[in-house]
Design a protein around this nucleic acid. Structure first.
Lengths: 196, 196
DNA sequence: CGAATTTCCTAAACCAGATCATTTTCTATT
DNA sequence: AATAGAAAATGATCTGGTTTAGGAAATTCG
C-alpha cells in the first residue's frame, strides 16, 4: 500500500469515502521523515500539526518545575500524536514530542483540518469520532491511575500494549505509568524471577 | 430564560442556529428532576443518556476491588455529565452517577443524539467541539496528576473551580484529587491556620 | 574497532501520603 | 430539642514508592 493511501484506509474505518473525497483527503497530508531524537512539537510554540505515524515511535512529555519529565503519550505505527491541547485550542504548547526512532509520519496542518471539516460532513464526523475515542481513552487512563497500584498499572499496560513496551525506553514507560524507573525495574525483576 | 432555551444558548456558543434548528434541538432534550442521592447512571447498565445540568450538583465515581470509591467527574450548573465511555461506545457502564443535591437536568438520549449529528453538519460540529474540549480537559488532569503533589493539586483545583469546592462533600473532592479524605483535611487545616 | 553516552539494574535510606482508631462537628429527621 | 447518622478532624503508626548513589550493559558514533 502506498503511504498516501494508509490514511485513506484509516479514515475509511469510520466513514465511507467517495473517489473525490479520497483525493481531497490525500492532498491534505504531507509525508515527512523524522530522525531519532528530532522534535516535532516544542513548548511555547503553537502546535501547527497533528501527525499520523506511518512507521516509527514517538513520545510526548512535559517537564515539571523540578526538571523531571512525565510522558503524556506514546505513538507507534498507525497511531496519532501531537500536543493535543495546543493543537485543538491553538495555544502555545507545554509538551515536547520527540522521535524515539527514525520515523515517517503524515502531517496534517490545522488550517487544512478546519477546511476538511467545514467542507464535508463526513470529515467532521471522522474527527468527532476521533475526539470521542481520545476522550474515552484518556478517561480510562485517569481511572487506572486513581484505582490501580504501580504494579497493576504496569501489568495492564503490558497486556494492552505489548508492542509499545518492546519499543520504548524504560524511563519513558515508567514516567508514563507515574512511577520512577527504579521502581519499574523492581517490578519487572520481581516478575521475571517469579516466573523462572 | 425558559429551561428548554438554556441548551439552545449553550449550543449557540459554538455554532449559530437557525429557527428550525433551534426547534429541532429543543425537542431532543427532556427536562428531568433528580432528587439528592438518586442515581442517573449505574454500573452494568449501558448509559442511555448524557445530561446537561440546569441546576444542582452531580458526582460520577467508580468503586474499586477494595470497595473504595474514586470520583471521576463533578458537574454543577451548565456542565455535562454521564459515564462517557459507556455512552459513547454503548457499553455497560462502570460508573455511578449520583445527585449530590436536588437537581434539574436536560436529558439527551443516545439515539436522538445520533440523529441530530447525522441530520445536520452543525450539530456534528457541536459534538465534535464538545468531545475535543473534553479530551483537552482530561489531558490537563492527567498532566496534573503526574506532575503535582497532593497539596498542589488541591490548590489548583480551588483556584479553577471554587464553586465546586463549596458545593461537594470533602470526601468526594479528596477522591477526585487522588488522596484520602484525611489527608485533604490536613491540607485544608494547615492552610487556614497559616493564613490567620 | 574503541570511547562516550544512554539506558538499565540494584540496594538501602527516606518521605509523602495511607491506614487505623477515636473524637468532634455537622445535618437531618422526627 | 433530641437522637442518630454522616462527615470532618486529629493523632499514632505504617508503607508504597522515591531518592540517592553506584555500577553494569547496551547503543551510538567517530
Amino acid at each position: 500500500m502506498a503511504h498516501e493511501d494508509k490514511i485513506v484506509e484509516y479514515v475509511s474505518r469510520y466513514v465511507s469515502l467517495s473517489v473525490s473525497e479520497v483525493a481531497q483527503l490525500s492532498v491534505s497530508f504531507k509525508e515527512i521523515k523524522v530522525k531519532k531524537r528530532q522534535f516535532i512539537v516544542q513548548p511555547n510554540f503553537v502546535a501547527q500539526h497533528r501527525y499520523y505515524v506511518l512507521n516509527g515511535a514517538f513520545r510526548a512529555y512535559v517537564v515539571d518545575d523540578n526538571g523531571q519529565d512525565h510522558t503524556i503519550a506514546f505513538a507507534i505505527d498507525d497511531w496519532w500524536i501531537t500536543d493535543y491541547n495546543s493543537y485543538i485550542l491553538q495555544q502555545p504548547a507545554t509538551m515536547f514530542v520527540v522521535a524515539l526512532e527514525d520515523s515517517a509520519v503524515l502531517q496534517m496542518d490545522y488550517k487544512s483540518e478546519q477546511e476538511l471539516k467545514s467542507s464535508n460532513h463526513k470529515f467532521e464526523t471522522f474527527f468527532r469520532i476521533r475526539a470521542e475515542r481520545t476522550a474515552a481513552f484518556m478517561q480510562q487512563r485517569i481511572i487506572s491511575n486513581l484505582t490501580q497500584t504501580a504494579e497493576e498499572r504496569f501489568e495492564r499496560f503490558v497486556e494492552k500494549y505489548p508492542l509499545i513496551v518492546q519499543r520504548v525506553p524504560q524511563y519513558a514507560l515508567a514516567s508514563y505509568l507515574g512511577m520512577t524507573t527504579e521502581f519499574l525495574s523492581r517490578i519487572r525483576n520481581k516478575r521475571t524471577t517469579k516466573k523462572s
